[in-house]
Design a binder for these strands. Sequence first.
DNA 1: GCCAAACATCTTGTCAACAATCTGGTTGAT
DNA 2: ATCAACCAGATTGTTGACAAGATGTTTGGC
Lengths: 226, 226
Amino acid sequence: MTDKLTGAAGRQYVTDAIRHSLRSGDLVPGQRLVENDLAESYGTTRSAVREALQDLAAEEIVEIIPRRGARIRAVSIDEAIQITECRSALEQLCATKAATQANEAQRTELRRIGTEMRQAVADGAVHTYSALNQRLHELVVEASGQEVARRQLERLNGPMVRYQFRLALRPGRPAQSLQQHLDIIDGIVSGDATAAARAAAVHLNDVIEQLRSSATTSSATAPTRT
Amino acid sequence: MTDKLTGAAGRQYVTDAIRHSLRSGDLVPGQRLVENDLAESYGTTRSAVREALQDLAAEEIVEIIPRRGARIRAVSIDEAIQITECRSALEQLCATKAATQANEAQRTELRRIGTEMRQAVADGAVHTYSALNQRLHELVVEASGQEVARRQLERLNGPMVRYQFRLALRPGRPAQSLQQHLDIIDGIVSGDATAAARAAAVHLNDVIEQLRSSATTSSATAPTRT
DNA sequence: GCCAAACATCTTGTCAACAATCTGGTTGAT
DNA sequence: ATCAACCAGATTGTTGACAAGATGTTTGGC
């Protein structure tokens, strides 16, 4: 075992660890996060854990109820839709700006992502496609130079990991979104701000549709009790 | 003197107090916030102040540098513009939804605000107009039912108080924005989502223009040193 | 007179013990 | 058998003391 992670380092470590556990499914919504347990299992002190939990609460990943402790926040489908609507608004903004602001390196990477996405769909490489998808959205924001929007989007995505996961695994989903992604890329690369924004809107509307239909398909987010 | 504000109560009290001091100009960007001093002057403990500062840092109102303490964050004009661009994107979303989702009470209040705004401009009542302006933006968001956007917009406005203040006092500003506000109201009240969104976009583009021109008029945000 | 190193002071970061509160189960009366 | 009051254990909240780091000042050398 390495040294005990103390103070600020521990704080960062714990937030990262929890975020990661959430992504990998080790933590489910509703699950209690007991300060002492976390401190022990991560080899930190309770203060570090406490502060980490505050950070995660600010990101709305966990919910802290006074005197009752922290638990992983459950995101209802309705809220997931609202989050995606906000993402749509902000990503349209970024796509618009990216179309005029992106530099050559960024345009080149966009084109490359487009090619690789086509390839991934042809190969049925779901995981690769998902990674490219994420990189694409990141790159659009980066190329727009809109730092404020970047931070907002980061925040919005925090509580969404669960749903992103669920959607990406739907059969036929990559094929369905491929053209939408390519349209976004085309719009930006060709410098057509309006087209880029419209393509982003179309794509995110489709994501919202998927969320809506998943509301009826899968059971509603069951409150996971102990 | 009342009792000492301890714990969670103190935490809330301190965040509110600092927010208020910022609004009223008692605190200027760059100003240091020393934990002990704040604790003493607000009659709280250092822990409460510490947590309050963390909250304010999450809202990007203060900036915490490790081992160096907290200070009021300075917002550059460039960042103010980015913030307003995000506001624009999100308020267009809200205006769109409000046009179809607003209930009768909300539509009635919107109409009333329109009338009172006209009156305030006619009377030259700058302060009244400014209050109506704020209420209008709030109400649009409220009527949209978009809770996520509401929280995002709240966060965006936190660091902006200084600029809002500066803009509202420009001579002739109310008269200039009146028509834009009335257009937003009309769009929503008449249920024309597209018109409402477009009106919101026009209004916020104009705010951005104002910010741009204020960049050349007034001196850039001078780093206020001790 | 100017610069650099040592120092004193101020300020934040960390921790561990203690207090307050909640939870769930047990007991006893009806 | 049901319900309410109570009790024990678990968990979070709060505090004060101490450690560690930054800042500004003084001192000594050149």
